[in-house]
Design a protein around this nucleic acid. Sequence first.
DNA 1: GGCCAGGCCCCAG
DNA 2: CTGGGGCATGGC
Length: 256
Amino acid sequence: MEKIPGEYCRLNFDIGTTLNCGECFCWRPDETGYHAVLGGKMRHLSQNDTVEKGSFLFHYLDMAYDYEGAMQEIAAMDPLLQQAVAEQGPLHLLNQDLWETIIGFILSQNNNIKRIMGLYDALSCSYGTAVDGGYTFPTPSQMQSVTEAELRALRLGFRAGYVLDAIQRSDELLSLKEKSFAEADAVLQKTKGIGPKVSACIRLFGLHDLSSFPQDVWIKRVMSEHFQGKDETFFAPYQGLAQQYLFTWIRQHYQR
DNA sequence: GGCCAGGCCCCAG
DNA sequence: CTGGGGCATGGC
């Protein structure tokens, strides 16, 4: 297949930075780059790849958004952000599957990213569909008859009941795309195990609400150490992206 | 081996 | 409305 100039985009950002920045739990490194099962298929991504306009990965990687421009504006907000931007370069906010994002961030609470990925794999392997060397993340219907005992056996711990409640509410949760972000927030927080922070993550990473500003222990740390007296409105209208830069920066620089 | 993790629930004040 | 203990598990 001949590549038509202009129809394909280079990956003009470091894919590892984005795929490892804690917004997704599905990508795994391999010899040539990364792979993940998304949209029902095994996807491979290497730094030198090009993505076709209109393709699954073009949308997933949010290639149409001007991250270079946003990055410059964020850098101009504050010296720390300027440093974070300089160190990390362009960082994309992915367009992820909503259901996968909901469950992923329910699993995330009081947990670390390595273990979240392990639980993500356990759910996929147990209830998903096998496709070329991997498993799809299970749909709500594939998890319909799951029991709390099964989920605890997969080592979800106290999050088992939360996942169960999300499954019960899956019809309503999957309709969030048609609601405003404020309405979505209210529905999300009615779900067991979804509070302000997890809801903010789901809105940012699953609904692409770029004004969402999730505050986990790392963000609270960097806010209290470097942004005293300020809140998320300081970063408007780039709250979501600025938050990802701060998250990555403080995790790399925090001592003890 | 103890502290911590992309927190939230629940219950006291 | 705010504060703090408890929660399952395993990475480091």
